[in-house]
Simulated scan of single mutants.
Amino acid sequence: MSSKPQSMVMLGRNVKHITRNPTTVFNAVLMPIVILLMFVYMFGDAFDVGVDYIDYATPGLMLLAVCYGLSSTAISVSSDFTKGIINRFKVMDVTRASVLTGHVVASLLTNLIAIAALIGVAFLLGFRPSASFAEWLGVVGIVLLLGFAAGWFTVAMGLASKSPETAGIAAVPLVMLPFFSSAIVPAETMGPGLRQFAEYQPFTAMIEAIRGLLEGAAESSDVITAIAWCLGIALVGFLWAGSTFKKRA
Rank of each mutant, 00 (worst) to 15 (best):
R195T: 08
V25K: 03
V40R: 00
L146F: 13
F153C: 05
N27L: 15
V139H: 01
L177M: 13
N111I: 11
K162S: 15
K162L: 09
A167R: 00
M10A: 11
V185K: 03
F180V: 07
T73D: 08
G147Y: 00
I119Q: 01
L144W: 07
A116Q: 08
I169F: 13
S163D: 09
F123C: 11
I184F: 10
D52E: 14
A65Q: 02
F179S: 03
D55L: 10
S7N: 09
G44C: 10
V185L: 04
V34Q: 02
C67K: 07
S78A: 15
A114N: 05
T244M: 12
I75V: 13
D52K: 11
A65R: 01
S181M: 02
A218G: 07
R88A: 08
M92V: 03
I85M: 15
P186Q: 05
I169D: 11
L137E: 13
T244F: 08
V105H: 07
R13L: 13
L70N: 05
T154A: 07
S72C: 06
G193H: 08
G168N: 07
I227M: 08
A74R: 00
A187L: 00
I75C: 02
A106V: 06
M62H: 03
P5D: 02
M10C: 09
L239D: 09
S181F: 01
I233A: 08
S243T: 14
Q201W: 06
V185D: 06
V175I: 15
D222M: 11
A198L: 04
V49S: 04
P129G: 00
S163C: 10
D93F: 05
A217V: 13
V49M: 03
G237F: 03
F238K: 10
M62P: 01
A28V: 10
M42K: 09
I207N: 00
E199N: 03
I142M: 03
I115Y: 04
A134N: 11
A74E: 04
V105P: 09
A131N: 07
F43M: 15
F47A: 12
D93P: 12
D55S: 10
G50W: 07
L61H: 04
I75E: 04
I54N: 01
A160S: 13
F123Y: 12
W240R: 09
R248K: 14
G12M: 12
N87I: 10
L63Q: 08
R88E: 13
G168T: 03
T154Q: 05
T101I: 14
V99R: 04
D55N: 15
V185Y: 02
P5G: 07
G242R: 13
S220R: 14
I54Q: 01
M8E: 09
A218T: 05
L137P: 07
I86T: 15
E165L: 13
I233G: 12
I113Q: 09
A183D: 00
S107H: 12
I115H: 06
L239H: 05
D48H: 11
I54Y: 04
G216K: 04
A209G: 07
V99K: 03
I142A: 00
S2E: 14
R211T: 00
V223L: 14
T58K: 05
V15D: 03
V40C: 06
G147M: 08
F127V: 04
P192C: 09
A149H: 00
S182G: 09
A122R: 02
A183M: 13
S243F: 13
L112N: 09
A28T: 15
A187S: 14
A226V: 08
T166G: 09
M190Y: 01
F26Q: 05
